[in-house]
Amino acid sequence: MIKIGIMSFAHLHAEAYIQNIRAVPDVTFTGFVDPDAERAEKFGRLFNVPATTDFDRFFAQKPDGVVICSENNAHLEMVERAIDAGIKQICCEKPLATTPADARRIVDLAAASRVNLMTAFPMRFSAPVLEVKRTLDSGAAGKIFCFSASNEGRMPSLYREWFVDKELAGGGALQDHLVHLTDLFRWITRSEVQAVYAQSSQAFHPGEVAVETAGMAMLKFRNGVFASIDCSWSRPDYYPTWGGLNFEVVTARGALQVDAFRQKLTVFSHEIQGQSWVDWGSDSNQAMIDEFVASIREQRPASVSGEDGLRTVEVIHAAYESAASGGVVTL
């Protein structure tokens, strides 16, 4: 029996992960710890699970692994606490940290204590994305030249206020939505980002928040592949879902177009007097948690590493530098 706990319910993904953890056979959910007493009380009751504000009590349950869902800037502290408590398996929400220095420290701490550190990049486990990766890997599409991509969404303060707090989140749209596609393209191309150009603005919800709400970036990889990413919070609050992730990959033989969340029903209902979307695609969060558990069970590193998290933090940092200077930033 493998035991897993969650550290902090600050990130809304914790609400999905708790159900994903419970869905894995032979895994016990040990409970969660959250320094915020109000959150601990609320989510403990909501999910009917042990919840505490006391880290010692949390670790006393002897979890084999933890999933960290704190505010972005608290990831380092959470990792430190887990490693101090002897935890050897950590899955940390993205972005790994809000600064390259913190991300580097997290990766170094994990390495020094031989911790299996996984960065939570669920899009690597998306069934449509996996299918496209297989096609590209098979060579059937020919050489990859570039990606035109979008990971646009609603402004996430809709779910949690801290997502738009510069200190706690580390920024706005660039911080929130560049990571997934950046990670996917590193993974698909097996190359690292060499140069970044980015622009940002407060085009959406102007004046409501102190961070950027719109952003576009162009990444150039060492192997020559390039990619554009729109990471804007351009979807209105009443959009049928949180947002989406799309890309077109152009190859020597043409192109593949991917809409990772296209597998949905369109539902019209009297209740809302309108349209809603219901996903029926495979749950990539579940597949990611399955992999974390499998890595614990098989005593091997998870397929996504802390290093993967660090690399994307470096790219985001470069994007902020570029947006500030107006020039191309070389990593």
Binding site: K143, F145, Q199, M218, S228, V250, A252
Partner: peptide
């Protein structure tokens, strides 16, 4: 990136004077 590529494709980011971003 590759002048012998069998395809042509171009990605452009425009920043308008009023701050609008076009891709």
């Amino acid at each position: 990136m590759d002048k012998d590529a069998p395809v042509d494709y171009a990605l452009t980011i425009l920043t308008h004077e009023d701050g609008t971003l076009s891709h």
